[in-house]
Design a protein around this nucleic acid. Structure first.
Length: 890
DNA sequence: ATACATACC
DNA sequence: AACTGGTATGTAT
């Protein structure tokens, strides 16, 4: 493919198209798009646009991406410019390569670790490539990598053909489409949040070095000969990278005269450090952490708070406010990092602060290690900062995407819009939109918090896989498969999961990966069941020689569908609606919608995942601002960040306990408003919820005891407990009793007490919940009239509630049994009577008899009628309730 | 529903 | 000798 061959039909001049949004001078844009705050000022630059950074590096020099004067970026009629940079694809080099420096280029690009996001600043890249080349020669792995690479090349060629074949007329249209996408992105631009990404520096290695200071000056890698997970900065200087095979790293160091020190990973240790870190982070706002070394925090509340205090004057100008907020954010995050360092006895973190998490993540890398950066808060300055960065720094752009973009000549953020026609031609619509939006610095600014609060299982699959030495013996393979199935089943039991699809993954000794799936009618969870299906799948592939086997189970009960609603919704719309609102509310609390940010704004959240992941945002028609009277409320400090999907003892996963102990001074009076808001919303939406509202008084049979239940009459007085109706939707598909292990975990994890039947304090047996019910269908609806309680208790209660829900519903054993679990309530076993009929409950609990507010049906007669009405079911589910749970508040 | 690919840490 | 493990999601079929 020669560039000259494209001279005739290259991209048309962008000059023909009206200068669209991204180039429009900021002054022409609505103020809301231009900068944070509500200022209508269009002035840019100045303090607000200046990036604040604390750390070693300084701001990149200004680029000219935005603004009228960037003709050099404009193709301006030169149709060749756009394609002149189209790369020759790798296969050209790969195959005619000979050993030597130039040959090294033929293999190095095949590896992810050569294209690290952070860049390869200051190390001998040539040598690295050389070593990789030499040590990879003739390996199965290299052969496979080259094969993959050839496929990619083909794909790229195809893509280029498409791009080249586009007519000028088409390009005009495409450019307009691109403009529309950019405009749509601008619509979503939102300066209202202060998003922070905290990233631990060389986390595993840092922990090891801290505990073994003599390592500090040596090149250290955590991992083994097979694979390195982290390396310290000394090792990095020699070209050692994460995800690099240890033996290559070792050789790399040897050739430079040093010996790489390998340290075996100790995941437990990292987990507990991660916990300490999360507690610090949690004291700054709602956060989310999927891995042990990284977290996203929304510090908006703290920022506004501090800024307001500093200004201490209502009459401050918008500009002043913005300045103050920037200062506040920077100082807060600096404090956060200092606390992390202190609490972890020396581990350092880097952080980025931005209006959304995508930018914050990039900023966090900017001044690594032990640095931070605040992304400019005006559009112009932001785009300037972003414009010439490599797209590879964008989360979601990996090796493949980078190469496709490169082959188009699109390398930087500013290139995307400039070459939008080609981008749209080369990628799917979703992907193009995603790219264009991100290239303008627009991204979601909400946290995607877990939803176990509603008993909805968030995890979508669970798996277990293992690499071993080439194995061709069928018996041995089946044995491995059996073990994997057993382990997987154990892991599933910890979360009471059951699924319908079993997938077997196998990697041949050629590194070729194959997956085979099979769905079943019944829910699968036992080792035998899993193995039974897996065995069948594997049998079809035998004989074969493998280097890896894996088993995965998916299609769980109550899985969340693509739109984010639980499968349950279809069958039980009303009930689902209620819980949906609860969920939305929780999210609102956690994401902490600002006064000016309406529910819908937050709710319009887009996916943070690469292309077009459907947005599972709850969109309820309740106006939160109205509901909470526009009153400022303190944020939910202790959001639950149980690491679903992360398993104890395996991988880099976090055990995910909750933080929230270190309460900041935020939510004091906010709590009352919080509760009011919660009730307002609940009452507004669902008949069921109003029922809950009225269900303050513990249902008939046994009243909650333990002396806490003194003020049921004084409903609006301060109480020292909450009463929580507890529902379980059961399916009549033959539930088993909870496995002992799980039961135990549940009990450990529960931080609430329930009214025991009759005798107070008696631990009646755990209700015979099927594992499946408990797994994913337990729903708790909490209502509270607690008006004033100690602030600290507030957090405790929230924690407890979540704790219970989470542990009963889906939390991992690690979490439930975590020694760090802190709860203010005495730990008691969850007890309760047998499920009762819902109608009885309603009659008894509400004193409303069968007039109970069934969602739609007016049927009032028998209990079963009520139940099915409530569920709008017709299916085989029944709604059962258990003894209300009473949560002590102190 | 299944297979495969891409991405992230 | 030796190139991970776990999860999610997108695309194609």
């Amino acid at each position: 493919m020669e560039a000259s061959s494209m001279a005739d039909d290259g991209p048309i001049a962008e000059a023909q198209v009206m200068p669209p949004e991204p180039w429009r001078p900021a002054a022409e844009l609505p103020a809301s798009m231009v900068s944070g705050g509500s200022s209508s000022s269009t002035s840019t630059g100045r303090g607000t646009g200046v990036a604040k950074h604390i750390g070693s590096k300084s701001l990149p020099a200004a680029s000219t991406w935005v603004g009228a004067a960037n003709p050099q970026h404009n193709i301006s009629g030169n149709s060749d410019t756009g394609h002149s940079s189209v790369n020759h694809t790798a296969s050209e080099n790969a195959h005619d390569a000979a050993p030597g420096t130039s040959a090294a280029h033929s293999t190095a690009h095949l590896y992810v670790f050569t294209a690290e996001k952070g860049g390869m600043a200051g190390c001998d890249k040539e040598l690295q490539q050389q070593v990789i080349y030499e040590l990879s020669q003739g390996s199965k792995h290299l052969q496979h990598a080259q094969k993959q690479d050839a496929k990619l090349d083909q794909r790229i060629q195809q893509m280029l053909t498409t791009v080249q074949n586009a007519t000028e007329a088409q390009r005009i249209t495409l450019n307009r489409q691109g403009d529309a996408m950019a405009e749509a992105a601008e619509t979503r631009r939102d300066w209202s949040r202060w998003c922070c990404v905290v990233d631990m520096d060389m986390f595993f290695a840092a922990v090891e070095i801290r505990d073994q200071p003599c390592l500090a000056e040596l090149p250290v890698a955590v991992g083994g000969m097979g694979m390195i997970s982290t390396a310290n900065y000394v090792a990095r200087r020699y070209g050692v990278r994460s995800a690099m095979p240890g033996f290559i790293a070792q050789e790399l160091c040897r050739r430079q005269g040093v010996e790489l020190k390998f340290v075996r990973p100790d995941y437990r240790k990292y987990q507990s450090e991660a916990q300490v870190i999360r507690e610090v982070i949690g004291s700054f706002g709602p956060y989310e952490s999927h891995t042990s070394d990284e977290a996203r925090v929304d510090i908006t509340d703290r920022v506004r708070d501090r800024a307001a205090k500093r200004l201490n004057d209502d009459s401050s100008s918008e500009e002043a406010i913005r300045e103050a907020e920037i200062e506040a954010a920077a100082s807060l995050v600096a404090e956060m990092r200092a606390q992390i360092k202190e609490k972890t006895r020396g581990l350092t973190a880097s952080a980025g602060i931005a209006p959304n998490f995508t930018l914050a993540k990039m900023a966090a890398d900017e001044n690594k290690p032990d640095g931070q950066m605040l992304v400019p808060r005006t559009r112009e300055a932001l785009l300037e900062w972003l414009g010439k960065k490599s797209l590879r720094k964008l989360g979601g752009v990996g090796k493949v995407t980078e190469r496709m973009l490169q082959s188009l000549g699109v390398e930087t953020f500013s290139d995307v819009w400039r070459r939008r026609a080609d981008v749209i031609l080369a990628f799917t619509q979703l992907r193009s939109e995603w790219l264009i939006e991100r290239s303008l610095g627009v991204a979601p600014n909400n946290l995607d918090l877990h939803e176990d609060d509603e008993g909805v299982v968030r995890r979508k699959s669970i798996s277990n896989e293992r690499t071993f030495r080439d194995q061709g013996d069928t018996e041995a393979l089946f044995q491995i498969l059996k073990e994997l199935s057993k382990e997987l089943s154990d892991d599933m039991a910890k979360e009471s999961l059951a699924g319908k699809t079993v997938t077997v993954k196998l990697k041949r000794n050629t590194f070729e990966v194959v997956t085979r799936a099979q769905s079943t009618k019944r829910w699968i969870s036992s080792p035998e069941d899993i193995y039974e299906v897996a065995k069948e799948i594997l049998a079809k592939e035998c004989p074969c020689t493998l280097r890896l086997l894996g088993v995965r189970v998916s299609a769980f009960k109550n899985a969340i569908d693509a739109t984010g609603s639980a499968a349950l919704d279809a069958k039980q719309p009303k009930l689902a609606k209620f819980f949906e609102v609860q969920k939305g509310q929780e999210e609102g609390e956690k994401a902490n919608a600002s006064m000016t940010t309406t529910r819908s704004t937050t709710g319009t959240s887009r996916s943070s995942s690469p292309p077009g992941m459907p947005t599972p945002m709850v969109d309820c028609d309740v106006d939160v601002d109205e509901a909470c009277d526009g009153k400022k409320h303190g944020g939910d400090q202790g959001c639950d960040v149980s690491d679903l999907g992360l398993r104890e003892g395996s991988g880099i996963a976090g055990s995910g306990d909750r933080p929230g102990s270190g309460e900041p001074d935020a939510a004091e009076e906010g709590q009352a408003a919080e509760d009011a808001r919660r009730m307002a919303i609940a009452a507004k939406v669902s008949p069921l919820s109003s029922f809950f509202k009225n269900a303050q008084q513990p249902p008939p049979p046994p009243a909650p005891q333990s002396g806490t239940n003194t003020s049921t009459s004084a409903e609006h007085q301060a109480q020292d407990h909450w009463t929580i109706p507890c529902f379980v939707i059961e399916e009549d598909d033959g539930e088993e009793a909870l496995p002992a292990q799980s039961t135990n975990e549940v009990q450990q994890g529960v931080a609430v007490s329930s009214a025991a039947t009759g005798s107070s304090g008696t631990s009646t047996p755990t209700p015979a919940l099927g594992r499946h019910s408990v797994a994913s269908q337990l729903m708790l609806a909490a209502t509270s009239t607690k008006q004033q309680r100690p602030r600290s208790s507030t957090a405790g209660v929230d924690a407890s509630l979540r704790g219970q829900t989470a542990s009963l519903a889906s939390s991992s054993a690690a979490k439930a049994a975590s020694p760090r679990r802190r709860s203010r309530s005495p730990r008691r076993k969850p007890t309760g009577g047998k499920p009762r009929d819902i109608a009885e409950f309603w009659r008894g609990a509400t004193g409303m008899g069968s007039t109970a507010r069934t969602s739609s049906s007016s049927s009032t007669s028998t209990s079963s009628t009520s139940a099915s009405a409530a569920l709008e079911g017709g299916d085989r589910r029944t709604l059962a309730w258990y003894e209300p749970v009473v949560v002590d508040l102190c």
